[in-house]
């Protein structure tokens, strides 16, 4: 019985992952926005949506991301039906949400799940930058908080993949408050002696950077990911000069002490697996 369900779950995630993967524009070929070179779509897809010419990491959908790191057949979504909201009744926002939902087949910018990585059970949350820039709405904050609380309750390690343009403007102050909510939930989680790995992907900015993304016991980043609080355009306007090459990129953040390791997508699964194993027995015996 169990194996039938496991197969079904594996198929379900695979289907959603394939759908995610079709959102990179292009028919049979893909043009890399970084090196401008054209590659065969199949080769890019086989390489986990990394440009085979220059190593540029294309943005990827949440389900596809999960399919690249979870052991097959172990994916179980948490709070799948948690709805998007419009707490301030902001003009035209409902329409924007619906169009993002149609485009991505997601209900909101965050997907949370349980599964195993290298056999170790964990809770994984992923932000999807295709959904209104992965911005932090009340629903995103709530889903992340529920995932943190689920991990705390079940004493599971937690992995959150950040990808966010920052705040969800249309939810105003309630978007801001999600920073406090998620950070407070992580404080409680941390007090239980549990492991939280934060993975920063392109882009991680604004309120997500200034809350849960920066609070990992271990912080990993994908190569070349833009990571910062203020966006480069705002900084450039403030200081009135062009920014140095590589400013706010993953490698820059590692050099400045804010990232433990820059991990290419192809090595993410084994790196996470190693970290989970290293923390499995725990120091509290």
């Amino acid at each position: 019985m169990n194996s039938i369900f496991a197969k079904r779950r594996a198929r379900l995630l695979a289907m959603k992952a394939i759908r995610d993967n079709q959102t990179i524009p292009g028919e049979k070929t893909v043009t890399c926005p970084h090196c401008q070179q054209v590659s065969d779509r199949k080769i890019v897809a086989q390489g986990l949506s990394v440009c085979p010419k220059c190593g540029y990491h294309f943005p990827i959908g949440a389900y596809y991301r999960l399919s690249t790191i979870l052991d097959p057949g172990t994916f179980r979504e948490l709070n799948e039906k948690y709805p998007a909201g419009d707490p301030l009744h902001f003009p035209d926002y409902r329409k924007k949400l619906e169009s993002a939902q149609r485009k991505t087949c997601l209900t909101e910018a965050a997907v949370t799940a349980t599964g195993t990585i290298g056999g170790v059970k964990c809770v994984v949350g992923v932000l999807d930058s295709r959904f209104l820039m992965g911005s932090m709405s009340a629903a995103v904050g709530e889903k992340i908080t529920l995932a943190i609380e689920f991990a705390a309750k079940n004493k599971l390690p937690l992995i959150l993949f950040a990808a966010s343009g920052g705040a969800r403007m249309q939810e105003g102050i309630l978007s801001l408050m999600q920073m406090a909510k998620t950070s407070a939930a992580l404080a409680r989680f941390s007090e239980k002696g549990l492991l939280y790995i934060s993975v920063l992907t392109d882009p991680t900015t604004g309120g997500v950077t200034a809350s849960f993304a920066s609070l990992g016991d271990i912080i990993l980043a994908e190569p070349g990911a833009l990571i910062g609080f203020a966006g480069p355009r705002v900084i450039q306007q403030t200081i009135g000069q062009t920014l140095p090459e590589g400013f706010q990129r993953a490698e820059f953040q590692m050099a400045h002490g804010f990232v433990d390791a820059v991990v290419p997508r192809v090595r993410m699964r084994e790196t996470l697996s190693q970290l989970l194993r290293l923390h499995e027995k725990g120091g509290r015996q």
Partner: peptide, 25 residues
């Protein structure tokens, strides 16, 4: 928060996040 080059280099986001985390408890 100041959106400047040095502020980013020294971890504006991390500093704010840490305050939220610590203040909550």
């Amino acid at each position: 928060a100041y959106p400047g080059l040095e502020a980013e280099e020294r971890g504006q986001g991390e500093a704010i996040a840490r305050n939220l985390f610590e203040m909550s408890r």
